[in-house]
Design a protein around this nucleic acid. Structure first.
Lengths: 155, 155
DNA sequence: CCCATTAAGTCTTGAAATAAGACTGAGTCA
DNA sequence: TGACTCAGTCTTATTTCAAGACTTAATGGG
């Protein structure tokens, strides 16, 4: 299977990765969550090939994760802002960051903390069950075919 | 910057991606969560190059996400099992799946559901604050430098 | 006017990674 | 014996990436 055909898969995870699973894409979003918006700023902070950055930004805009907004007309200049859909990924990224920090703690602790402005505390993202509200024990997850399943493979 | 040097970054997200950010890696883990354990099964279900699969499995074992366990001696045969560290990624993957399903619902609904065996219901993974217990509004997350920060870049 | 600078890309080139599938080696099964 | 299983390894052609030079349009200073 080719990576480029991932979006055609039935599997939800495959379709998610078709959007944000390319190299650098999640790091571009990390910068976006840190309020970076302009091409050269993304490029300078990530140090990635400009060609790749161009491609990733275009892809994220096409998938509605970022919006390209003109901030001046002459010469035309644009910035990239998160959409609501893009913002929805932030808690997940925090969860991923918490996962690494839990397993590969540096000597001094995590380099970045996240404050929950609602309650004012630095927090970890705790995954809970939408039905019973309890924190999810990873061993208590049982995947099974849903209504949109075609045959046997899915996710 | 080269992708291979990602693990040396201070940024937690970069270090997470150095472990699970390669092409196909998360799909390998999806299969592992669906109880797939053997090389040929992974290969047949994913349809990826065997060379790439070999590399990804080795990488995941090296990083303690999977364990390679002999299940017979002659000829030697192995299977790959999730470690606790690997299991810790399952709620995050469910969250990612929920994210796509929310934004790109198929006509029939999601192809895969997840049951929370503790309460018996199909659930979505809701990210909540470890401090106040509330569901996290993505706009209420304020990243800031933590104790392990070196200069300005992080995550 | 002339030159430097900024910003958002595009282009080029050589180096890596991936896709597809053939091949290998040890052992089992009939 | 010959077909088959399983877990890889190898080969080749194609794609993608890394690094940085180049482009275009405008602004600011001397």
């Amino acid at each position: 299977m080719r990576w480029r055909d991932l979006g055609d898969e039935e599997c939800s995870l495959a379709r998610a990765l078709a959007v944000v699973g390319d190299r650098w894409t999640l790091l571009v979003l990390r910068e976006a969550f840190l309020r970076v918006r302009r091409f050269d700023d993304f490029q300078a902070r990530l140090g990635i090939a400009r060609r790749v950055l161009t491609e990733r930004l275009k892809h994220l805009v096409e998938h509605g994760v970022l919006r390209k907004v003109a901030y001046q007309d002459a010469p035309p200049r644009f910035e990239y802002r998160l959409t609501d859909k893009g913002l929805g990924l932030h808690p997940l990224l925090v969860g991923l960051v918490n996962w690494v920090d839990a397993h590969y703690a540096g000597k001094n602790g995590p380099p970045l903390l996240h404050r929950h402005v609602t309650c004012g505390h630095d927090f970890r993202s705790v995954m809970t069950c939408s039905e019973c509200g309890e924190a999810i024990d990873p061993r208590a997850i049982a995947p099974h075919a849903g209504p949109g399943a075609r045959k046997k493979k899915a996710s």
